[in-house]
């Protein structure tokens, strides 16, 4: 009984936590023009700087782009429209991150796929080893041998 109580308490705390986050954390952000400009600018690279975004850089180039973003946002353009206009002028290198289409897809998909695939592999391994730990006699299993080798080499 005590054992179950502990788990219930943990689940309860986590649930409260999630609820609180959902309620307060997602409070509507009153994004003003300044915030929206910065949001767009932070996705763009300052081409005359090293590694800085248009939002961070004090350079004249960045100031010009920021002014353009502000004016276009006020005129009702979407951030995506502004980005695609700038890409048509400066090329993809003005974006701080690869686009999610085309070849950029590789960069976005590979890490989560690696984590999921790796997690599946590690879990298989753990349960295999657990089962082996439960069998009293160890059999030289070629499949396990292979899995182990794969893990060792990866």
């Amino acid at each position: 009984m005590r054992r179950r109580l502990g788990w219930i308490a943990i689940a309860w705390l986590v649930a409260i936590c999630a609820l609180a986050l959902a309620v307060y954390g997602s409070a509507p952000v009153h994004a003003g023009l300044d915030e929206r400009t910065t949001a767009v600018a932070s996705q763009l690279r300052c081409l005359v700087c090293q590694g800085e975004s248009v939002a961070d850089s004090p350079s004249g180039f960045a100031a010009g782009i920021r002014a353009l973003i502000r004016r276009d946002l006020r005129a009702g353009e979407t951030p995506a429209q502004i980005e695609s206009f700038l890409v048509s002028r400066y090329g993809n290198r003005i974006l701080m991150a690869p686009q999610s289409g085309g070849i950029g897809q590789i960069a976005w998909l590979a890490p989560p796929l690696l984590v999921l695939g790796g997690l599946g592999f590690v879990l298989t391994l753990i349960f295999d080893w657990r089962n082996r730990g439960r069998t009293p006699v160890l059999v030289a299993d070629s499949y396990l041998e292979r899995v182990r080798a794969e893990l060792a080499e990866e």
């Binding site: 005359v48 002014a67 353009l68 700038l86 002028r89 400066y90």
Partner: peptide, 13 residues
């Protein structure tokens, strides 16, 4: 003065 033409041409430096 607004750098609009420069940005339109893709001028950066």
């Amino acid at each position: 003065p607004s750098q609009d033409t420069a940005i339109n041409f893709g001028v950066w430096g």
